[in-house]
């Protein structure tokens, strides 16, 4: 195959992918009271990874981020299920979440919510699943 010129894409990707990942993390934390959350954040992070994948190739991505995405999916599911199942210990219905307001340094008064833990699970599952799908389709070519 003729070698294609992807210099522009590669250079832009180096900058853009970090911006996308930063924004996805912002979306993730914005989640509870404003639009955003684990699912959308995860999807956006996965989009950044897919951009890297397009600009470079699977091997390079493996070298930068040596994750097993199937394990990541499993870990995310486990976190999500265990967070939800935590309510079993307090004998309240499954999925019941707890929250409270804390005075944190720098951030001031912040509401901390157990739903964030659940969302971290969702975030990981979404990245894991999306990357597994992309890799499965990509590898067989």
């Amino acid at each position: 195959m003729k070698k294609t010129n992807d210099l522009i894409l590669q250079t832009v990707t180096k900058v853009i992918s970090f911006i996308i990942i930063l924004f996805s993390i912002h979306l993730f934390f914005a989640g509870h009271y404003t639009p955003g959350g684990g699912f959308i954040g995860g999807l956006m992070t996965a989009a950044a990874l897919v951009l890297l994948l397009l600009a470079y190739d699977i091997k390079t991505l493996d070298k930068i981020l040596p994750f097993d995405y199937k394990l990541m999916t499993a870990a995310g599911l486990l976190i999500a299920v265990l967070t939800a199942a935590g309510s079993l210990l307090f004998n309240v219905p499954f999925f019941t979440h707890a929250y409270d307001y804390f005075d944190l340094p720098l951030l001031g008064e912040t509401s901390l919510h157990t739903a964030v833990l659940f969302d971290i699970g969702v975030y990981m599952v979404v990245i894991g699943i999306t990357m597994t799908i992309i890799q499965t389709i990509g590898e067989s070519e």
């Binding site: 199937k70 394990l71 999916t73 499993a74 870990a75 486990l78 299920v81 199942a85």
Partner: peptide, 13 residues
Amino acid sequence: ILIPLLAGVILMF
């Protein structure tokens, strides 16, 4: 529902 779900997730590791 929860028991097989947890088992399935653990088995994925």
